[in-house]
Design a protein around this nucleic acid. Structure first.
Lengths: 142, 142
DNA sequence: GCTATCAGTATCTATTGGATACCTTTGACT
DNA sequence: AGTCAAAGGTATCCAATAGATACTGATAGC
């Protein structure tokens, strides 16, 4: 669904689906949605649960999600104020895809940490142990 | 799997799963992985397919994915150089969760665009049409 | 009065992302 | 011999974003 009304395609930089995909993949947005999966939460609670996010960035994230129709924001005119955030139906429909990703991340932690160690060791070795003409390209240096 | 070896939990800021989750949700990383789902691709091809990414950022993304063991980088010692990027088995295991998210994004494009329009209209109206004492909080201003 | 509560802003700085130019080697072309 | 193109990046500089910190505002309770 780009300007030419072709089918949505994330690889097309002009396609809104790409922007939306990146909004979902935002650093904080996906965490917020998963927290709200349990039910409505107020601002300060959200801040504690999605630690460590600064209020400015949390506000930005929430506004963006609200604009996209994924959450609602309800203000109770009290003092001190109470503002509840809650998933919309569309927001809830994101929970399942997100939880799959979350499970993937949580289950692959050990493997990825090992891969990082191996990579970092290889880097160190390349810097310290090998002759200076052996670069990453496999070709001689200039 | 945090420093105390508790079960992985994305909501714990000390848990590596959180970092990994955010790496997946990186602006370009997930697109790269989806492109590589078709098979090995060389740098310049990748740049065209994942437009519009600058070479610096693409390099950073690829290095990070390589470090995490999600892709491999193979250099063919030719001139001009040829470098192929390819998913590892772990990288391939990410394809399914990611494609779900992609399908979600592509299918919700119209609804989200409508929500944005509605939100923006409401904002304009609030700014232009309503009395100045009616803020977002529902409480009087100071 | 003074303080606490809650939901944010305002301000400033550090980090990241992006645009652009440039580098390297070698074969093909002139 | 000189020049250009190709591929996979770096280097450099500037803009946008994220983050740290301080602060606002109304009111209830002490």
């Amino acid at each position: 669904m780009n300007t030419q009304d072709l089918p949505a395609n994330i690889l097309d930089p002009n396609c809104p689906s790409r922007v939306i995909f990146q909004r979902i993949g935002d650093k904080w947005a996906s965490l917020v949605i998963q927290v709200l999966g349990e039910g409505p939460v107020r601002f300060s609670e959200l801040r504690k649960m999605v630690s460590v996010v600064t209020p400015k960035v949390l506000t930005q994230t929430l506004r963006a999600l609200e604009r996209d129709g994924l959450i609602t924001r309800t203000v109770h005119a009290q003092v001190p104020p109470r503002v509840d955030y809650e998933l919309t139906a569309m927001g809830e429909s994101l929970l399942q895809p997100l939880s799959l990703l979350r499970e993937w991340a949580e289950s692959h932690v050990p493997t990825i940490l090992e891969a990082r160690d191996a990579y970092d060791d290889a880097q160190d070795e390349a810097l310290l142990g090998s002759p200076s003409w052996a670069g990453r390209t496999g070709l001689p240096r200039g």
